[in-house]
Design a protein around this nucleic acid. Structure first.
Lengths: 359, 359
DNA sequence: GGCCTCGTTTGAAGCGCTTCAAGGTGATGG
DNA sequence: CCATCACCTTGAAGCGCTTCAAACGAGGCC
């Protein structure tokens, strides 16, 4: 926790750095327009001029003034992505997919973290819009936030909503069908012989959880079943799962519950851990399915069967949507892309041993 | 994988959105200057004028043009942070710490992901610089990249290096003492009775790993010991760990190795998993210490003792460094902040059972 | 040798905003 | 009743860049 202090003199430090294009121009003995051409249309310029100008640029450590350029041009070559939760790997995957799309299109991607807070979602969407980025993508999972955003409308440039099924009258959006994931989980538990199933959800208002529950119910109904237990913990983290697990021990031991679908892997991992600590054996007495294909599901003492979400593809397709809307701003028809999740079977529902290094 | 398509007409969609401050001014029947005052110095404006202007702003869905503003003002109210690896929780923590500092200072934080690639580090540092952000922070862990950046020097505004001990002649930087972490690991293994210790590193060129090795060696030397085995896997992931674990099984069974320090938690978790699958008992036959306090260490079947890094604080202090340099651009003396890691004892070295929900 | 053409360079306009000196207005005090 | 003052508002300059019509030169051709 100490700090060493030293002088800054002499290093490769920032020069005055206030050089403008006209400084470069006069140093190189050409006009501003020519310097601009060197920067943006080098093919229009003689080799010797090019050389002279570039030397001047070096000499002055000239950094073009982006705002001035954007002002003159009227747009920028980047777009923004506002993420709800950087600690959730789904969003990181979304970012990486979006980044791939951006790179392919020759754009750069600016990220911001809203931490799921509406005020910050607004701040950053607005900040990006004011920065005149080509467009903005926003991940969303709360219905009330959606309503707030929808009421406000699009902030200048195009806005694409990710991870939320938005009304195509208002926005392009891309999301992963959570109801399908829910019914996948149910079908899998039923297929592996379970009949007395529990649903562990989360705080209300989270669209994804609502949809997962819906799909789960639907699948059960199709089989003439109904959930035996439903619990909505206050959070969707490991400790919430641990608490839920403790509550379920008796039910499982008494044979009243033999399958559990938890709406997040952390939840599922917590439940599994509570069971392990209390002599409830997984998967023989009870099967567990999580959601998200987080590392947590993988790393759990008993690797947990889970529903994987194609986050990377979500980001990629979402970015494409945005790019298309940017390209054809007029007469654009908003689209709603739906992606499907995948069932990933592991030991918590009775799969043969899985091994690390294989995903 | 279907897409529903609908019209965009009628929703709360983007209006022409090309309204400028003068449109607002003429609609409200005031001058541009007044509109600008409404935006930036509302206290200078009569309530009735304020109201009239705000109404006009609403009506036109006016979004101030950021580039124009930055151009006029000469700076922006945000700064940039280029992260090497969004999937590593350390960097996410750094981001959140930096964000806290930004919020306190009334600035916004723009993120970008370099993915550890030098070209992207350069692209984004330059992009931020051109955007005339107040300053840029860059996480770095490769010496050759540092050399490239140092050669180029600072790109206009201040540049602070994170997670790398930079020469204070050139840059401010903040990092966490990896050598201290390495010796902590060694000391802990020795304290818990181990003497035949192995070091598992990683690809060369990674400054953090180099330093961890250094500290580890130093501590051993202090105790008159030397590492029994040193392995440098090609990567630092779980599968690399699994492979290393397999290689070590015989050594451990033969009693030639009784303590392992792995330079990453993923590595350690892989090793532990390989041991578990092959009847090598942890911690009784061998103790394992990881690094990073990742979720992986926590979630491992046998929770792994690890070295925690104060990533949040690193981001926070780094941002403060940057803010200070922004405030006093002249006669600024670069600082190098050093933070210390923490030993977190878990079962892999013999701690009593730990429980989820408690971190 | 004069004229036309083509490729290069110039110079000024203008992007949308902030700022600030100068102008207006109403209230206050003598 | 007029001078003074405080407070609002105006209008124009200027931030650094791109763009584009116009100027310029250097060949090439008749």
């Amino acid at each position: 926790m100490t700090s060493a202090v030293q002088s800054s003199a002499g290093g490769a430090t920032s020069l005055p750095s206030s050089a403008s294009i006209s400084d470069v121009a006069s140093l190189a003995g050409v006009s501003q327009g020519t310097v601009s051409n060197v920067l943006n249309h080098p093919e229009r310029v003689t080799d010797v001029t090019l050389d002279r100008v570039q030397r001047a640029i070096q000499m002055l450590n000239y950094v073009p003034n982006g705002p001035a350029r954007s002002l003159a041009v009227g747009r920028t070559a980047s777009f923004g992505l506002v993420l709800s939760d950087l600690s959730n790997s789904l969003f990181v995957e979304i970012a990486s997919g979006a980044e791939r799309a951006a790179e392919e299109a020759g754009l750069t991607l600016l990220l911001a973290n809203s931490d799921g807070r509406l005020d910050r979602e607004n701040t950053y969407v607005r900040l990006f819009a004011e920065g005149r980025v080509a467009g903005v993508m926003l991940t969303l999972n709360d219905e009330s936030h959606y309503r707030a955003i929808a009421r406000r409308g699009s902030p200048g440039g195009p806005l694409v909503l990710l991870n939320y099924a938005a009304d195509p009258a208002s926005f392009c959006s891309a999301h992963i069908r959570n109801d399908v994931g829910g019914s996948m989980a149910a079908e899998h538990l039923i297929e592996t012989g379970r009949r007395r199933l529990a649903f562990i959800g989360g705080p209300s208002g989270l669209q994804p959880v609502t949809e997962r529950r819906l799909g789960f119910h639907r699948a059960l109904t199709d089989h003439g079943l109904a959930p035996v237990v439903e619990i909505d913990p206050v959070g969707v983290n490991r400790s919430d799962g641990w608490a839920v697990g403790l509550r379920l021990i008796d039910e499982v031991k008494a044979g009243r519950v033999d399958g559990i679908f938890a709406a997040s892997d952390l939840l599922a991992a917590g439940i599994a851990q509570a069971f392990a600590a209390n002599d409830v054996s997984v998967p023989s007495s009870v099967g567990i399915v999580g959601y998200d294909n987080n590392q947590a599901a993988w790393d759990s003492p008993i690797p947990i069967t889970t529903i994987g979400q194609p986050g990377d593809e979500l980001g990629y397709r979402g970015a494409q949507l945005l790019l298309r809307e940017v390209a054809e701003p007029h007469a654009h028809r908003h689209e709603q892309i739906e992606l499907e999740p995948t069932l990933i079977v592991r030991e918590s529902t009775g799969a043969a041993g899985t091994r690390p290094g294989v995903r």
